[in-house]
Design a protein around this nucleic acid. Structure first.
Length: 189
DNA sequence: CGTATTTGACCGGCGC
DNA sequence: GCGCCGGTCAAATACG
């Protein structure tokens, strides 16, 4: 697509605060968030289930208002074709962005789009284009707040991310320099 | 020309 | 047992 990818500022996601970042981890209002719970409640895939819903109300965001959706969650991800039913770690988070697809450093190929019942907006299904990696993610926009995009990752990448490494290399260099400097300082002291 | 996206159809599980 | 719903496939299409 022609739309410029919105680079995810991972540092801003990891750090407490990120000045000047165009993307923020959504901070939901203190009110109940059942509408958003569809992707917030993530079944433990046997490994880990993380919900990132902002700095404060991550716990309340897990409220599930529609049991139907949870039921579907329970079934294996095989779906249409008999694929691997092994449940994998899943992890969902919400971001506020104009762009549905976040450039997280990996390359994704869209393989489906479906309209879900809870949301007036369609849910998009993506898959990592690496042959050795079948990580999937689904992106859905909240009907309640169209500026919020819920991204659900399924599985973990088993290959390095060039973009991420490229972005991280200067930081790593600085870290190396700092550590060397620190060791030198310690020796002097 | 090669690759990514779109879109309709199909499949399988769960609820009733 | 049937229908609903979500997830995936694959052919067609668009784009660089």
């Amino acid at each position: 697509m022609s739309c410029p990818p919105a680079a995810v500022d991972w540092a801003s996601l990891l750090l407490p605060r990120a000045p000047g970042s165009s993307l923020h981890v959504v901070t939901p209002p203190p009110a109940q968030q059942q509408a958003a719970a569809g992707a917030s409640e993530v079944e433990s895939g046997g490994s880990s289930a993380v919900t990132v819903a902002g700095s404060s109300a991550c716990a309340t965001a897990a409220g599930e208002g529609d049991n139907n959706k949870v039921g579907k969650e329970g079934k294996k991800g095989g779906g249409g074709r008999g694929k691997k039913k092994a449940s994998r770690p899943r992890f969902a988070f919400q971001t506020r962005s104009d762009n549905d697809v976040l450039d997280d450093g990996y390359r994704w190929r869209k393989y489906g789009q479906k309209a879900v019942k809870n949301s007036a907006f369609p849910r998009s299904y993506y898959r990592c284009t690496h042959h050795t990696c079948d990580v999937k993610k689904q992106v859905q926009r909240l009907a309640k707040d169209t500026s919020i995009v819920v991204t659900t990752y399924e599985g973990v990448h088993n290959h390095p991310c060039e973009k991420l490494m490229e972005a991280l290399s200067p930081i790593l260099k600085q870290l190396q320099l700092l550590s060397q400097l620190q060791s030198c300082t310690n020796q002097l002291l």
